[in-house]
Amino acid sequence: MTKLELAPYAAQASRWPAAGRHILAQFDAETVVVYQAYRRSIARHAALHQRLGGPEFSFGRMSWIKPNFLWMMYRSGWGTKPDQEAVLAIRIRRAGFDAILAAAVPSSFAPGLYPSQEAWRGELQRSDVRLQWDPDHHPSGAPLARRAIQLGMRGVMLRRFVEEWTVGVEDISELVAEQRGVLGQGVEGLETPREEVYWPGDAEIARRVGVEASGGR
């Protein structure tokens, strides 16, 4: 039994924004759920110790998190791609998630945020957080007009994510496999983690990461 709150996909899809840059996530007043996919040995260690780590996990690499469950399913092939068979739902402090957003620098040049490509490259080199907006995806894998966010962390920010902001880790691989089987019959019976549009606590953070104000607070 997962700790995540689930809801019918079809009902959720009907109320999510159809287009634009929106952070879809399961969250409450204190925490936000983000997803990562790993080989089973890394996931076992994380679930046992309630934080990432162990001999196979590297703090020297960029580590990407996704608050949108279906974007994680697209990237991991619903838990079927090599070294992505185990999907983790990592609950982190909401203040930490906003701090990650505040430190994020786009992976590609954003003219509205930086006066020049040189200025952007300098920020990119100094920052420990990368930001990407990619096409969100239907459960079948078809791309959508809506954009989904993913955040890559390294260095101090990755350490803080693991050691300071993580409050719980759940291996949801069984849920993923179960719903992958349901999806084989169509989306009618599909259940996914309940997600709403997330709005950062600071309007300036929202502006810098490029979320659509029409998504609401």
Rank of each mutant, 00 (worst) to 15 (best):
V105C: 07
V105N: 09
P106R: 09
P106E: 06
P106T: 03
S107P: 00
S108L: 10
A110R: 14
L113G: 08
Y114R: 07
P115M: 08
E118R: 15
W120F: 08
R121P: 01
R121V: 02
G122V: 03
E123Y: 13
Q125V: 12
Q125T: 12
S127D: 01
D128E: 14
V129H: 08
V129C: 06
V129E: 11
R130C: 00
Q132I: 00
Q132H: 09
W133N: 05
D134T: 12
H137V: 03
H138V: 01
G141R: 03
A142D: 13
A142T: 12
P143S: 13
P143V: 11
L144Q: 14
A145V: 04
I149T: 12
I149N: 05
Q150I: 01
G152R: 11
M153G: 05
R154D: 00
G155T: 04
G155Y: 00
G155N: 14
L158N: 10
R159N: 04
R159G: 01
V162F: 01
V162G: 03
E163L: 05
E164N: 06
E164C: 03
E164A: 10
W165H: 07
W165R: 08
W165D: 04
T166R: 11
T166I: 08
T166S: 10
T166A: 06
V167D: 02
G168A: 15
G168V: 04
V169S: 06
V169I: 07
D171P: 10
D171A: 01
D171E: 07
I172V: 15
E174I: 03
L175Q: 02
V176N: 11
E178C: 02
V182K: 14
V182N: 10
L183N: 08
L183Y: 09
G184T: 00
Q185Y: 03
Q185T: 04
V187I: 15
E188S: 15
G189H: 09
G189D: 11
G189T: 06
L190E: 12
E191L: 05
T192S: 06
P193K: 01
R194F: 09
E196L: 08
Y198M: 00
W199G: 06
D202K: 11
D202Q: 12
A203V: 13
E204P: 02
A206S: 09
R207V: 01
R207D: 08
R208I: 02
V209E: 13
V209C: 11
V211A: 07
E212K: 02
S214G: 14
S214F: 00
G215F: 09
G216I: 05
